[in-house]
Every structure is written in C-alpha cells, then in structure tokens.
Amino acid sequence: AVLVRVLKNSNTLGIAIEGGGSTRQPLPRIVSIQKGGSAHNCGQLRTGQVILEVDGIPLQGREHKDAARIIAEAFKTKEKGHIDFLGKDY
C-alpha cells in the first residue's frame, strides 16, 4: 500500500472511480485521471490504483455511492488543504 497526499490546488479533484461493495470490483478503483485536476497535479496517483482509505476512512465494504461521497466530501472540506489516499498499487 502507498500513501499519497493530494494537495487541493485545483477546483476539481479530477478522478473517475468505479467499484464498491456488492460489485465485481469490491474496492473503488481509479479508472481515469483528468489533466489539470488536483490528482493529476499531484503526479502520484495512477489509473488502475485501488483506494483503500481516504483521510484515514476505510472504504472496504462501502457501496459505490458511499465511497464516492466520502471522497467528494474530503475534497470539499476547507478544513484541510490536502487529501490523503491510501492506495494499493495496480
């Protein structure tokens, strides 16, 4: 597993995810990274990586929408200028 810190230096996070509980892909996986988004600027996230935790919140067992909401809220909150992703290499 690898810890990646993404700085919120763009208006968008810029990732697309698939997967979640009760699907063929039980943990959310990054399927694309948009240029110019914070994730792309960070340079350490890769398409195909599976996300285990977001800011210390485990995503195991969460439905897709729930996992997406957690990531969206982590990006939206202004309390912190970054998001920590615990990822598993692809």
């Binding site: 968008t12 996070l13 698939e18 009760s22 063929r24 897709h64 997406a68 990531i71």
Partner: peptide, 16 residues
C-alpha cells in the same frame, strides 16, 4: 465462490 463473483454486477463510474 467463483460463480458467485461472476454474477456480481459491474459498478457505475463516478467522476470526482
């Protein structure tokens, strides 16, 4: 177990 996995649906995709 393998058959069960194959019956799981694909996931939707969300842009964040």
């Amino acid at each position: 177990v393998r058959e069960k996995r194959l019956t799981l649906p694909p996931s939707e995709i969300t842009m964040l």
